[in-house]
Nucleic acid binder design. Structure first.
Length: 592
RNA sequence: GGGGGCGUAGAACAGUCUGGAGUGUUCGCCGGCCUGUCAAGCCGGAGGUCGCGGGUUCAAAUCCCGUCGUCCCCGCCA
């Protein structure tokens, strides 16, 4: 018999009754009745109940929660009336004949059950204990099963899994790069990849045809519930592909993962919405289509209004949009909070209206509206007594984004029981910065839908770019890539990157494009975000084994941390005086 | 960079608005009792820098200012 274990707990069932087995694991619970004691032994698969006679095995009195033990005993059917239907192994128990404590445990910093919400910093400081909790252990397993299912699906489709470097050249575009100083070339730095973008394109040029990778990516931007500085993407790319090929491959991966974790078959193809329509109807490029509350254009109703705010918005080329937020009672404080939120979302303000029982509108602006306007408004928004109507008058994008944000705040389901996958297509090639300059909206290697139209009117040009969205969460994005240097330069021209600087920054890549580059395209989606939604979690951290806090700290290892002066010297690095001074002061305070 | 929430025993909380002795609940911990529990039960006990610093006050967990930590959001995130 093996030293520690003959079976995992969940392998024990009625078919093994009468057999001597050995289980190993942690003491999840001890229920000591004096003359008899019950132990819940937890291992990597589940839990089994062990029955101990203290007269025979007095060590049971020493056991505390989370001690590791190995126990030998006979599997027996549980007595009548003591079967536990909540346990996989609830029909049987193990009558202990030998019990060995393998290692003790200190009293725990928090209880390892799912019944209370422990402070997250404490959970991260003791993540190795946190991960023993059923929910976290389930998330770890779910993630592994999801990636395994994705690998199987892509392998079946003939994809090649290729690893690309994580120490690469920094390019100033996009997110802030995480930098790694070079010792052998002092003063030079590697960057950690924001995505394997250019390498996967090089693989297409290299003839790989169908590539995928479960790739760690790094973006040095601020944290959110669904954003960490390092995260994992399913990255793929294919040659001689059009948009439909990319989307079919991504759908195959997403369907496989969803089948694995949810046991449901998502119909394909996923619904498609153009970027423009997504903005018009939902006020966002990542709409949650599980609920309605769609945005409606009210501009024509107020074309000749005497209400100054609306009139000036229209006169300035803006628009008036509204949503029907449905049946609710808006207190003055709640109404004020909505207006504040609208301002936070970038709006100049927000008009709210409560439809009263008699059909009249209670609103700070009601007195400025004509009878025709009030009627038209209610009709357009399908308003009935008890509804709350929200109206934004602003620039096109601002009005829509404000209402899109409020729509999410007010209507979004709290959980992810329902799954609504969606493609958002036909993104614009470029976005206008605050100062009016154009920047790419996807990345600079994205193929425009029409090169001539792009050169004529960059502001309105569309790209062969698309996002996949699940329940209002942007899972990822992709595009058909530019595969000839001339088109690439035309895009650079619009971005204000002249030939010389393009040559300096991307010359190696532009040269590669000249050696028979196949038309190609690809996509990447966040594994963390996908598993987060499928596991019904509100935060990406719940599906990452060792995430960081919002300030980028790992409370377990205390990373990041200062390094020895000698390490800096080797790298040819000297801290800026004000930084060194602040560090020294912090160190002095810590030493007090 | 900005807005907001939270910080009280090892853990989760109540107490803070309206200042009056570190008061309380549940879990855990320590000791005792207990042969069918599965969040076992019963009895007893220990455990507190009310995040930290300053201010107001006869008196501060409570009011004010600052600061640190953490979470959510805006900006940022090709």
């Amino acid at each position: 018999m093996s030293r520690y274990r003959t079976h995992f707990t969940t392998e024990l069932g009625p078919d093994l009754v009468g057999q001597r087995v050995r289980v190993a694991g942690w003491v999840a619970r001890r229920r000591d009745h004096g003359g008899i004691a019950f132990l819940d032994i937890r291992d990597g698969k589940g839990i089994v109940q062990v029955v101990v006679d203290p007269a025979r095995l007095p060590q049971v009195d020493d056991l505390r929660m989370e001690y590791t033990v190995t126990i030998e005993g006979e599997v027996t059917a549980r007595p009548e009336g003591t079967v536990n239907p909540d346990l996989v192994t609830g029909e049987i128990e193990v009558q202990a004949s030998h019990l060995e404590i393998l290692s003790p445990s200190e009293p725990l910093p928090f209880m390892l059950d799912d019944r209370t919400d422990i402070d997250e910093r404490l959970r991260l400081q003791y993540r190795y204990l946190d991960l023993r909790r059923p929910r976290m252990a389930a998330n770890l397993r779910a993630r592994s099963r999801a990636t395994a299912a994705i690998r199987r699906a892509l392998d079946d489709l003939g994809f090649l899994e290729v690893e690309t470097p994580t120490l690469i050249r920094s390019t100033p575009e996009g997110a802030r790069d995480m930098l790694v100083p070079s010792r052998l070339r002092q003063g030079s730095f590697y960057a950690l990849p924001q995505s394997p973008q250019l390498f996967k394109q090089l693989l297409m040029i290299a003839g790989v045809e169908r590539y995928f990778q479960i790739a760690r990516c790094y973006r040095d931007e601020d944290f959110r519930a669904d954003r960490q500085v390092e995260f994992t993407q399913l990255d793929l790319e294919g040659s001689f592909w059009e948009a439909e090929d990319v989307q079919a491959a991504i759908e195959a991966a997403l369907v496989a993962a969803t089948r694995e974790l949810r046991g449901v078959e998502i119909p394909t193809p996923f619904p498609r919405l153009s970027w423009h329509e997504a903005m018009e109807r939902y006020g966002t490029d990542k709409p949650d289509i599980r609920f309605g509350m769609e945005i409606v254009d009210l501009s024509d109703i107020f074309a000749s209004t005497e209400f100054g705010v609306f009139a000036s918005a229209l006169a300035n080329g803006g628009t008036i949009r509204g949503i029907n937020a449905g049946q609710r009672t808006l207190s003055r404080a709640e109404a004020d909070a909505l207006v504040e939120r609208a301002k936070q979302l970038g709006g100049k303000g927000l008009v709210w209206m409560q439809v009263e029982a008699d059909g009249s509108l209670r609103s700070p602006v009601a007195k400025f509206l004509s009878e025709t306007e009030a009627t038209g408004l209610k009709e357009r928004l399908g308003a009935v007594a008890g509804d709350v109507l929200l109206i934004a008058a602003d620039r096109w994008k601002t009005a829509l984004e404000v209402l899109g944000g409020l729509r999410n705040d007010l209507g979004r389901p709290k959980n992810h029981d329902e799954l609504a996958f969606l493609w958002v297509t036909d993104f614009p090639m470029f976005e206008e910065d605050d100062d009016g300059t154009l920047t790419f909206s996807h990345h600079p290697f994205t193929m425009p839908q029409d090169v001539e139209a792009m050169q004529r009117s960059p502001q309105t040009a569309l790209a062969h770019a698309y996002d996949v969205v699940l329940n209002g969460v942007e899972l990822g994005s992709g595009s058909i890539r530019i595969h000839d240097p001339e088109t690439q330069q035309k895009v650079f021209d619009i971005l204000g990157i002249d030939r010389e600087s393009a040559e300096r920054r991307f010359g190696w890549f532009l040269e590669a494009l000249r050696y028979g580059t196949p038309p190609h395209g690809g996509f990447a989606f966040g594994i963390d975000r996908l598993v987060m939604v499928l596991q019904n979690e509100a935060s990406i951290r719940e599906v990452m084994p060792f995430p960081k806090t919002q300030t980028g700290v790992d409370p377990l290892t205390s990373a990041p941390a200062p390094v020895d002066e000698a390490q800096l010297v080797e790298l040819g690095i000297q801290l800026r005086p004000e930084v060194a001074a602040a560090l020294a002061q912090a160190e002095a305070q810590a030493g007090e």
